[in-house]
Every structure is written in structure tokens, then in C-alpha cells.
């Protein structure tokens, strides 16, 4: 057993002081130790994100999925549909012009509000925080969304509209 300095208060006694003033007082040494612990907790949280991304990779849409008939979605209108089996993701199909179709995820990349196509503006609008996306590319035009909307490729064949995963 290590020899202890007789003039120094033992650790067990310092941790459970008798005076309430000493019990509630947080010294700078203790604060620094707490910051070390907090820093470790942040690193662990960041590691959790990595583990989660490794454990649950995003599922890709396999093959083509039927969405709607061409005559059901007039020019300038949008049609809501869903993709995915285990994890259902809402998407919107937009009939921009004759023979011009786009499909974007309906969840805004800011705080996952449902976005909608504005026929007057010819842009995609998120009404929650006034975010705007390009109806052509899904890129952010204005507002708080940090990323463009995820996009699916649209295939029109025999009067039917299908979506599939993009090449990129």
C-alpha cells in the first residue's frame, strides 16, 4: 500500500464532505474533468452514427416501380406515391411539361416537412420554413434546406410511368 501524506485529506473524505458549502461547490478542477467526460461522450455519439450507418445501409430501389398512368397526372400537376418495402419513403411525381417528368422525395431535407409542387411558381415549396427547390433538378433555391431533394429517374413506357434508381 502506498504511503499517504498524513497532512492530505484522503479522497474518500473529500468526496463526501460534511459541510454543505463544500458539497455544492464545483471547483475548476472538477469542471475540467467534467469537460473531459463531455468530450468523450461527443466522440462516442459520433461513433454511434458511424456504427449505425454501417449496420443499416440505405436500401436502393431495385428495378422499376410502377407509379401511375400518364393520363392520371396532367401537365403541371403532382402525384404522391411511396417506395420501399421495409422503410417506406414518400415521393412526388411531377409532370413538368409534355414528356417531362420528375420524381423527388417528399421529405424536405431541412426538417422533413412534406414538400409540394407549386404550379404557379414552377418550383417545389416547403411551406414549413419557406424553403424552395428547383422542380427540374431538386437543388435548393432558397431557404434553410441544406441538401437537394433525393431524386429518382422516371421512365415512361406504354402510357405508364415508372421510377427507378438513378445512374449516379
Amino acid at each position: 500500500m502506498a504511503h499517504e501524506d498524513p497532512g492530505k485529506e484522503p479522497s474518500w473524505k473529500a468526496d463526501f464532505p460534511i459541510e454543505s458549502k463544500r458539497a455544492t461547490h464545483v471547483s475548476r478542477r472538477e469542471f475540467a474533468k467534467f469537460l473531459g467526460l463531455l468530450s468523450g461522450a461527443f466522440a462516442v455519439s459520433n461513433g454511434f452514427i458511424v456504427l449505425r450507418a454501417m449496420a443499416f445501409p440505405p436500401e436502393k430501389l431495385e428495378g422499376e416501380q410502377f407509379v401511375a398512368n400518364v393520363e392520371d397526372v396532367p401537365v403541371g400537376e403532382m402525384f404522391q406515391f411511396e417506395v420501399g418495402e421495409e422503410k417506406i419513403i414518400p415521393y412526388i411525381l411531377i409532370h413538368l411539361e409534355e414528356d417531362q417528368w420528375r420524381a423527388f422525395a417528399q421529405k424536405c431535407t431541412h426538417l422533413t416537412c412534406a414538400v409540394r409542387y407549386s404550379k404557379e411558381e414552377k418550383k417545389i415549396e416547403c411551406p414549413c420554413h419557406n424553403g424552395w427547390f428547383s422542380a427540374d433538378t431538386g437543388a435548393v433555391l432558397q431557404g434553410p434546406p441544406p441538401r437537394p431533394l433525393p431524386q429518382l429517374e422516371v421512365v415512361v413506357r406504354d402510357g405508364k410511368v415508372y421510377v427507378k434508381e438513378g445512374e449516379s
Partner: peptide, 10 residues
């Protein structure tokens, strides 16, 4: 990066 900073903090 976060792990390195945590190690440095401790």
C-alpha cells in the same frame, strides 16, 4: 477527428 479531440481533452 472527434475521437482525437476527446483523447486530447482527457
Amino acid at each position: 477527428g472527434s475521437l482525437l479531440m476527446a483523447i486530447a481533452s482527457i
